[in-house]
């Protein structure tokens, strides 16, 4: 087989296409992984929140399990390798992660630390009873909202 310039070009084009397809699927995977973890957080927040609102009877063990699961998911979603620059609302369909995250990455990390602190507060509160859990919801909401306020694009 003769190696012609044309053939080299074709191979190059094919591998470029493959790598950009890989990049695109990698971006979509990361975006989905972020959302899946946040959904897990939402479900566990729901366990705590429904007790706090009085929709469900307070159950200390269930609350503690939810707070622990919330902590685990939050630690995972806040890891640096979940937030590769460029995997954002400008480049990935359905992503609402604003590019401002990477322009202010230190602040983004600070807000993540605030969230972890709020979750630790909730974990402690589950051992103290319903009133403590109710009080912890404000900090949790503030921490979630603090990041969504500046780093999440509005829903279309």
């Amino acid at each position: 087989m003769k190696i012609t310039a044309k053939r080299v070009g074709l191979v190059l084009a094919a591998s470029l296409a493959a790598s950009s397809a890989f990049a695109a699927s990698h971006a979509m995977e990361q975006q989905k992984a972020r959302e899946d973890l946040m959904k897990v957080m939402g479900q566990n927040l729901g366990v705590l929140g429904k007790m706090a609102k009085g929709e469900v009877d307070f159950d200390g063990a269930a609350a503690a399990a939810a707070a622990d699961a919330l902590h685990e998911a939050a630690v995972k979603v806040l890891a640096d390798d979940m937030w590769e620059e460029g995997i954002d609302s400008m480049s990935v369909d359905d992503s609402r992660a604003l590019p401002e995250i990477w322009a202010n990455y230190d602040d983004f990390k600070d807000k993540g630390a605030t969230l972890i602190a709020a979750i630790e507060g909730a974990q402690a509160a589950t051992g103290e009873g319903l009133q403590a859990v109710q009080a912890s919801m404000g900090d949790l909401g503030g921490a979630c909202g603090g990041c969504h306020k500046v780093y999440r694009a509005p829903e279309e």
């Binding site: 939402g42 404000g138 909401g141 909202g145 306020k149």
Partner: peptide
């Protein structure tokens, strides 16, 4: 309006997250 949590336990974002800081 207190914590910013929706019934699905998503949260307010954008301008409304700012509003919730005062309704809180």
């Amino acid at each position: 309006l207190k914590s910013g949590f929706t019934p699905e336990f998503d949260t307010a974002g954008g301008e409304m997250a700012v509003v919730v800081e005062s309704t809180a």
